[in-house]
Each structure stands twice: as structure tokens, then as C-alpha cells.
Design a protein around this nucleic acid. Sequence first.
DNA 1: CATGAATGAGCCTTCATTCAT
DNA 2: AATGAATGAAGGCTCATTCAT
Lengths: 218, 218, 218, 218
Amino acid sequence: MSSTSARPARARSAEEKHQRRDDILRAAERLWTTTSYAELSMNQVAREAGLAKGTLYLYFDTKEELFLALLSEHLHRWISATADLFLERQPRTPEGVAAVLLHHAEHLTPLRRLLVLLGTVLERNVRPELALEFRRDLDQQLRRLVGHMPYAPDTAMRVLRHLYAMTIGWQQLSESLPGTDPVTAQLRAPQDTDLYGEFELALRAIVGQLAAGTLVAS
Amino acid sequence: MSSTSARPARARSAEEKHQRRDDILRAAERLWTTTSYAELSMNQVAREAGLAKGTLYLYFDTKEELFLALLSEHLHRWISATADLFLERQPRTPEGVAAVLLHHAEHLTPLRRLLVLLGTVLERNVRPELALEFRRDLDQQLRRLVGHMPYAPDTAMRVLRHLYAMTIGWQQLSESLPGTDPVTAQLRAPQDTDLYGEFELALRAIVGQLAAGTLVAS
Amino acid sequence: MSSTSARPARARSAEEKHQRRDDILRAAERLWTTTSYAELSMNQVAREAGLAKGTLYLYFDTKEELFLALLSEHLHRWISATADLFLERQPRTPEGVAAVLLHHAEHLTPLRRLLVLLGTVLERNVRPELALEFRRDLDQQLRRLVGHMPYAPDTAMRVLRHLYAMTIGWQQLSESLPGTDPVTAQLRAPQDTDLYGEFELALRAIVGQLAAGTLVAS
Amino acid sequence: MSSTSARPARARSAEEKHQRRDDILRAAERLWTTTSYAELSMNQVAREAGLAKGTLYLYFDTKEELFLALLSEHLHRWISATADLFLERQPRTPEGVAAVLLHHAEHLTPLRRLLVLLGTVLERNVRPELALEFRRDLDQQLRRLVGHMPYAPDTAMRVLRHLYAMTIGWQQLSESLPGTDPVTAQLRAPQDTDLYGEFELALRAIVGQLAAGTLVAS
DNA sequence: CATGAATGAGCCTTCATTCAT
DNA sequence: AATGAATGAAGGCTCATTCAT
């Protein structure tokens, strides 16, 4: 069933409950790497987590809230790690900034797919207060990240917006019609062109463009 | 019901059958401007087309194939129009090229939303042969477009790839969590930043980058 | 499964559709004689009718609407039969009137149980327009019945109200805790007291009371 | 939460346990005045009582048993009070008897609704032994009440049966399809007819009928 | 005794697809 | 070719009850 080996039968303490919630998120995450949102049923998540279906609803009110939580988590993690990396590297050039922003990009497929969900399906069936909380929290996190970037806040935010759009776009591009005869795949990058390289190139270009003459002392 | 004037008798000739198929696509298109894929049922499409549900399946094997056909159509239309515009304007600068590529961008929301679908849901439940056909056809079209662009084929194709990614990305960005408290909307562009402008800026930057020193005699 | 022997596979004509709808109502009715509303699932109804679950929802929007239709039907039937009986017998005494109103009372258990439902559960999850239609229709029917009773309309309506209340009351009384040791059943009528007789007595008493000096020429 | 002042520690003595049981019944009672049986969850009762869900099951085996206990209590209370009133007033006329039986009728809505439950839902999922006990106990109480009525035991019991039936019937009638267009509400009493008045009238009529020539020395 | 996390059968309902007409 | 009634798997979700703590 699940990978978690031993687990208390009942989550009593707040800590255990957090752990249980985490178990569910981990289960969803595992399935998420191979399955689309529509195909992924709560039943499956429950089975993967080694829990009963009803238990899921003890921790998340709806399927959408579960996945919003997963997105939130991944976003936090990325923002945190990226902020730290800015602090550590203190990049001064567009290339350096882009490099920080793209650090570990190859491991972020789940996050990118979740971001696609956000604009597609997550907005529905989530309690408005939760949606608001998600946004507030995200804003706060982003502000922190912006603070570590070597640009004026407005510029930094614009950079992030472009990153966001590009991230989604290239993610989608990379998923389009997989399994199609590669010979005829033309829009799809040829063998020797890696999508990731293109993404990087684009980001560098846009950062360079936006950053022109706006470097600030951090 | 719909815009189709007369009640459909039997489509006998190939031409009539093509017309019937087109009616269905037009109906789907009308609904598509206001409704998400999941919310849009085959029943609705049938009603909008003034046809019975079963009739749809005479022309399209699955819901996905119907929408793939719609995407194909929009893509064709855009490629054609854009190729013509290249021919007409013969742009020589990145700005000019970007301007051609973004021409009528504001009317392309349905196409952009269909492109999002492609990577999300259209890939499933489509007969492989149809998927292949779609790709072949698209490639052919793209080659034609590439031929009209003032760059080497490889470069031109790269530009198109970036356009594709950005298109999807900004489309998604523009749809994320609407209705959320605007005060806290930070990732979302502030009032005075228009998404479209950012998109344009990014495209120009990337075209400029890719095109550097690669202008060819068309 | 069902008792209906032969049946068209698909109900095409309006008549066949009415028949199919009727099949469902008949199936629900059969189950209703032995099962409580909460215990009676749509699944069971479908099975009993020899149809798929989804088919039920082609004819009734919700479980409640199905049972409201069943109630409506039974009510119609009773009102019609009773109005006819008034016409035929032209009763002039309270006893005669009561006898008409109680005619076939022993076969009306399903109706009585449905009436109990009305005030308990049917009011919820029914489209307001349908509820209104039910009431309008019922009122019209009742007016017709009242027209055949040998009393002024107001008095006749009061009689019906009392009949309604008593019907429900005695029905409930007859259902209370069945299977309980009869020796100790005290509130419950002893062997030699039949509930129905009591019901009749009460109705006669109330009709006599209300009718005192109000006989009209019908 | 509720009206229970202190948070419940452990109920050790029999008295404390009785108190705890009572707390639960009081909580259920409070909710019962505003909520239907189906809508009223054990969770709510627990919360209202300031207890955990599991604790309820220490005192009542099922939801049904909890409500049967509540009914039993209300019935006791009413029987006691009514017996006392007979003793005090010593009514000799049907009007007097009816008046005693209907004393405080306007406060008995919860009891009436519980009686409706009895025939509908309480009969299921209750241990037979408990059902039997309920009946035995009720019989005993009723015998006491009958002893205070100015009729022969059989007659008195018949009066009570009629009261029971009418009580339920008028209760249900008063609840049927609330919120429906009053214009079309025909079965429902018109503005100037009060349900309670009708109920009283009916009871008087039936008592008069049954009591004819059967007055006994109490 | 008390807790409340966990259970899981079962609910009603939807809708892409099929197929008898 | 066209119909639309029928299908039925699958969905998300509820809640009385249990049981490890």
C-alpha cells in the first residue's frame, strides 16, 4: 500500500495529526506524479495512504482543498529554498538570477503541474476563506522572496510573474501529446534541443530585459 | 438553440456531412468561450448544435477528439493568417516579428485555452492514429509558417516554441484564482500592469535574443 | 427482477415513456409496502424495475421527486374514486359520509405512509416549482371532491382536514413498535379492538359534529 | 456550546452517571426543537452536550435508543402532569376531560414530533429488550393515568388512543409543505381556522362520543 | 470513564458512450 | 444518417459506530 512503514493507529497529538495529514499529502503526491487530476480519485489516495476514504475527509474538506494544500506546500518549499539561495549566492547578473530561479527546476514537475491545476480546477469547490488564506500566505511568502532579489520590488515581482508564466508554459509544452511519433514532432523540440535549455534561455532574456539598469543594493 | 438555421435532415453527400461536422464544431466553439472543458457536456454541445447526442458520435469518436478537431481548426486558422501577415508585412526587426505573431492576440483566448487542454486532457482518450495525424498535419502547417519567417528554420521554430509556451503560461496566469481579494493579489498583476503588455515584452525579448545576427533573406 | 413481463427495450413514444415512468413508480410502490423511505435506495428501485440506476434519473430528478409523484398518484386515485362514490351513493348522514370517506381504507396503507412522508421528508430536495405544482393540482382535485360532498365547501374542507389528520395518526399508531410483546401492549389496541373500527368511530363523530345542521342540497 | 456549566470530569457514582446521561438527553432535546431527526447528527448532540462522540455510546447503544429515551421521558412527564391535573380538577364533562388532556398542548410540540418518530424510525435499530422495557414502562404509567380518568379503564384507554392518533395527525398536518404558496394552500387550514382549535374540537367530539353514559365514580 | 480519530458501507447523482429503433 | 433512451462505472461525500489510547 503505502511506503510509510510504521504508524500509530490513531493520531492523537497535534503532531501525530500533522503527520497523518502529511501522510495523505505524500500519498496524493506519489500518485500525482503519474496520474492526472481527473483520473486520480480520492479512493486511490486513501488506498495509497493506507487509510479509509472517510479519513481523508477528516483532514481535507474536498478533493480540491487537498490538492490546494499540496500546491501550497510545494510552493512554500520552493520559495523558501530559492530565497535561501539568493541569500547564499547574492547573484548580480541576469544569468546569476536566472540560475537561482531555475535551480532544481528538473525536480519541480509536480509543482508545475499543480500550478496548471490552480488556474484550471482548484479555484472551484474550495471554501472562499481558504482560497483567500492561500493567496494571503502566498503573497507574504513572495514578498519575502522579492526582498532577497537584487531588484526593486516591482521589478522583482515582474520577474516572478514571467517565471510563473514560463514555468507553466514549458511544462505544458513538455507534456503535449507524449508518445507521438518523434520523427514528426516538430513543435516539440528535436532531440538535440532540450526544453529546459530553452526555458532557461528565455528566462535569462526576460530577466536581462527587466533588470536593465535596475540593480539595487540588497 | 443555435445559429444553424434549418433543422438538419439527413446529410447525404460528403459536402453535407462536412457541413454537419462543422455545425458541431461551431456549437462546441460557442460554448467553449464561456465554459470549461469539464463543465461542458456532450449533451450541451448536441443541444447547441440542434442535434441529438448520438449524432455527435457519428462524427467524433470521443469528446476529446471533438475538441482536438476544434483545436486543430483554430491552429490552422491562426497559422494561415499569420503566414499571410508575414508575407504582407515582411517584418525585419524583433519588434516587427513579435507584432505579427501577436496580431489579434486578444481574440485568441479560445485557442489559448484549447492549447492548455492539449497538454492536460486531450492527450488521453484519443486514438493514437488520430493523434499522429494531428501532429503530422500541424508540422506541415508549421513548416509553411516557418518558411515565411525571416529566420533560419531552426531559429524560427524555436521562436514558435517560445511563443507557444508563453501563450499558455500567460493564459493560465490570467485565469488563476479570479474573484480573489484583489488587495492581496500580488502574483497577479497590479491594476496598472497589463498582462498582455508583459506577454508582448517577453516575446520581444526572446525574439530579439534568438534572432541576434540570424536574419536571413526570405 | 420485475413483474412486468415484456417491455420495449427503449421507450420511444410518449406513451412508452409514460409506461416506463409508470414501471418505475410501480417498482417503488412494491418496495414501499415493505421498506421505509430511508432504507429504500434508488439502487433497489432500479433493480426492482429492471433498469439501470441512471435511467431513474431520466424520469425523476431526485429520490424525493419520485416519491412525491407516487404520493400524487395515490392521492389522485383516492380522490377520484371517492368523488365517484359520493356521486353514486349521495350519502346524507354522517355515517354515510364517513362510510364513503373510509371506503377501501384497508387498502390505503401505502398512501397513508406516503402522507406521513410528505410532512417529514418530501418537502426537501424537491424543486419549488414542482412542490407548487403538486399543491395546485391537489387543491384542484380537492375542490372537485368538496363539490360532491353534501356540505358547504368550508365544512367539507374541514371534514377532509380531519380525515387527513386522523388517517396519519391512526396509521402511525398502527405502526408503533410492531413485534413488541402483545401481552404488554396496552396503548396498542387489544386483540378485540380493531384500530380501523376506532378510526371509523372517530371520523363519524367528527363528521356528525361538523355537519350538524349544515346539510346542503348538492 | 451548551448550558452545562462545568466541563465533565469522570462520572463515577451512579448519580453522576445518571447526571451525564441526563446532560446528553438535554442536549438532544435542545437540538430537537429546531432540527429534524435525519438532520440531527450524533456529532451535534455530542458537541451540544460538551462531550465526545464516543461518550454518547457509553450511555446509549444507538441513536435510536437515545431518542427513544427522550420520548420516554417526555411521555412520563406528560402522563404525570396530566394524572395530577385529573386529580386536581376532577373533570366530569367531555369538555372538562378534553381540557385536561390538552392542557399545555402548545408546549408539547417536541413530544408530538417524537411520537411521529416512534412509528417511523425509532422502531428500527433498537434492542428488542429495550423496546419491550419501553412498552412495559409506558403501560404501567398509562394504567396510572387511566385510574385517574372518570371512565371505565377500557373507555379511558380508548380515549387515550384517540388522543394519540389525533396528536400525531395534527402535528403532521401542521408541518406539511411549509413555505408553499399560501394562496393555493387548501388542505392547509385558512388563516382564520386555527389547527389547534380543530384538534380540540375533534377531541371533544370523540370524548363525548366515547363517554356517553359511561361516567364512573373515580 | 472518556476520548475523538478512524472506519467503510452506502448514499445520491453524473455523463460519456452505446445501441435499438 | 439520426435519434435519444438506456447504460453503469465512477464520482465525491456522509455519518453512525468502533476502538486504540
